[in-house]
Design a protein around this nucleic acid. Sequence first.
RNA 1: GGAGGAGUGCCCGAGUGGCUAAAGGGGGCGGACUGUAAAUCCGCUGGCUAUGCCUACGUUGGUUCGAAUCCAACCUCCUCCA
Length: 423
Amino acid sequence: MKHTLVDTAHCFTPKSEALQLLIDRGFLHQCTDLEALDEKLRTGPITAYAGFDATADSLHVGHLLPLMTMRWLQKTGHKPILLVGGGTTRVGDPSFRTESRPLLDDTQIEHNLAGIRTTVERLFDLSEGQGQIVNNAEWLDEFRFLEFLRDFGTHFTVNRMMTFDSVRSRLEAQQPLSVLEFCYMMLQAVDFVELNQRFGCTLQIGGSDQWGNIVNGVDLGRRSGSQLFGFTLPLLTTASGSKMGKTAEGAVWLNPSRLSSFGFWQFWRNADDADVPRLLKLFTDLPLGEIDRLSSLQGQELNEAKKILATQVTGIVHGLAAAEAALQQGEALFSGQEDLSQPTHELPLSLLAKPLGLLDLLVKTGFATTNSEARRLIRGGGVRLNSSIVLEETRMISEGDLKPGERLTLAVGKRRKALVGFV
RNA sequence: GGAGGAGUGCCCGAGUGGCUAAAGGGGGCGGACUGUAAAUCCGCUGGCUAUGCCUACGUUGGUUCGAAUCCAACCUCCUCCA
């Protein structure tokens, strides 16, 4: 039960296109058997999967790494399976969490699955035989308890399950770990084997925190006679050490209904200097040569690389048109000559019929979540209306504030600006 | 089932009758400096129809002029014992 742990691939030269590409671009953290996987990838198309919980109606930036990995696999001729955890979400992955997760009901999960689907559909070719979305509720819902125990329970020992970091950390922290959550790792292993039997899936991709769960699946597969592989991705942190993917409004969502293309674009545009090369390799399709060139830019010039990064990623996740529009908006708003492009926010003109306060406007455009927060922003001198700082909390929006086209610019801080149009 | 311990704001964590919308830290946001970067310094960080009002220290009741703080019951978790 030993697995080759390959943290870096210095000593290994892959022969398969897929693995070569993934390693060069920095996707590999660990692999259960790198050489055998390489051979398998080289000799023919394989089917791989990555799992996603259905805890929200949109995926977020943290999910983008496995998604990109799967995307490259598809581009190099392999078949991706995007597994959504319709079944497992009802249990909740306890890995490295200090608290139990709230359990979701079926209608909520159903709603979440639909939201996730919209993103996945844009990233992958899901036509017949190319790739697919699978819901593990399909089989998990079917299991009967005794049957499950008999078929799978015999292959797991509590002794071993206890040794997993995800479990141990919870126990050592004296945090509760319910049997329900404890069994999660069995379910994930069963998923892998089930996908292997149904679709010939032989590879699972996951975050580095999933290593234990993935290995479980690989071991279970061996017991039923299949050689399975696990491949984990590095944990993404920003140069300043924090976990990537959080901003003002919380998580950076992939779904445009949760975060506008402009907001998404801005997230990447505001990346830390030191992160740019890595982000370009992981989250764009640009050739490595081009990335090297962009990465060599220094100082202010690096901002060009950030724009390219932002536009590329937004293009992949939201579509080219949206990415271009976001770029235009960014250019226009930050170069001072706003207008031309489309408003970032459109509000009904009828709002102006009654006196509209600036506080209200800030909340309506999403810059503040509450009136109090809007007030604080104004008090701190962080709000600009048509480029001039507003200090009166009671400021009303009047006809005079509107520029031709019934629009005005609103900015909160240095980085968040919007063109507000009334239609 | 028994004994002991714990549950505080986004997170960690102090607080054991009024001075507590609750120390301190983290995170986040805003300002200055810049390059829509980093680092640094300063400020803010429950809500509202706002010189006041409402909600908040596991839940529900109680004592008190007054409770996160005292009492009771309950819920959840931890440790030890059976």
